[in-house]
Computed example of a mutant assay.
Amino acid sequence: METLNQAVSLSEGVVLQTQRIRHQRSRGPTVVFLHESLGNIALWKRFPARVAEMTGADVLVYERRGYGTSSDERLPRPYHYQEDEGQVWLPRLLDALDIEDVVLVGHSDGGSIALIAAAALGKRARGLITMAAHTWADHLTVSGIQNMIRRYTEDGLREKFQRHHGERTDALFRAWHTIWLDEGFQKSMDFSRWLEAIDCPALIIQGEDDEYGVPEQVTDIVKGIGPSARPVFLENTGHSPHLEQPEQVLALIYDLLLIVNSREIERFD
């Protein structure tokens, strides 16, 4: 198993920073990780590597525009920025890396983008796992962001973020809370139309104590996708299940990949 860090050039002058974990003989589709609103490659910690080790699957982790060492994004963000990421930039990245079949693992904003990407990629999306995804802006999201702004300015959270985001910290934080607290964005955000196009096994995960999302986010997503989706609520878990309950989430991913890989075998029989 080897790890390769690579800056990938796409169209329109966009460069995305990637990390790939590859096996000499990989099993099934590549597992692609999509980070949260204030995330990057490093903030996944060892979780993607543990998935690669446990499952034998190749893994791709990448940083969206405006994050880490990827290209700057255009600010302010448009209302459809998540849809742009899911239906435009992720498919372009996969094409550039010659990756065909994928299992998408998305957290928070990355979970919402994963839903859009799973629909946009069609048969290329062999599996889907979301953690704390949103298809609409609910009151817990808005109040959680307002509380985060207070903590950023009063409780030293800015200094913590600077360790991960450096000189981009203020711009990234402002881009995040500005769009989410925009009433026009809140009213327009609705990803339900993407859900019925998702045609792969899906686990929709949320912590029971998630301070950024109501349980209906999960039930609405599962209802929109249909029988191939399963809701998972984790006890004693907040907004980051993969960090708070890593063993449970690893087991869930492992089980989903067993289902996906059995379908791959059937596909080529």
Rank of each mutant, 00 (worst) to 15 (best):
I198A: 03
L93I: 03
H242D: 10
R20D: 03
I113F: 00
L252M: 11
V249R: 01
E85I: 07
K187Y: 06
I198W: 05
H164A: 15
L243C: 00
G127P: 07
G39H: 06
G156N: 09
A49P: 04
S9M: 10
H177M: 03
E83H: 01
E196Y: 11
L60P: 08
R124Y: 05
L104Y: 00
T153L: 15
D58M: 02
E154S: 08
R158L: 02
A57R: 03
V218D: 04
D220W: 10
Q82I: 14
L121R: 00
E73F: 13
G86D: 03
V32R: 10
E235Y: 06
E36Y: 14
I149E: 05
L256V: 05
T135C: 07
W89G: 06
N236T: 10
R267E: 10
L43T: 12
W136E: 13
R168W: 08
I221K: 04
P241Q: 04
Y152R: 06
D209L: 12
E73M: 15
T18M: 04
V59L: 01
T141N: 12
V102H: 07
F191T: 13
A118H: 03
V142W: 00
V260D: 02
L60A: 08
L104V: 11
V88N: 14
R74V: 15
G213D: 04
G68Q: 02
L195F: 12
F191Y: 14
G127H: 04
I113S: 03
H23V: 05
I145M: 00
D269Y: 12
G144A: 02
L16M: 10
L94P: 11
V88I: 14
H139D: 15
L60V: 07
G213E: 12
R64I: 09
R22S: 15
E2V: 09
N5M: 10
A120T: 07
D101H: 14
I225M: 08
P76G: 02
V103R: 05
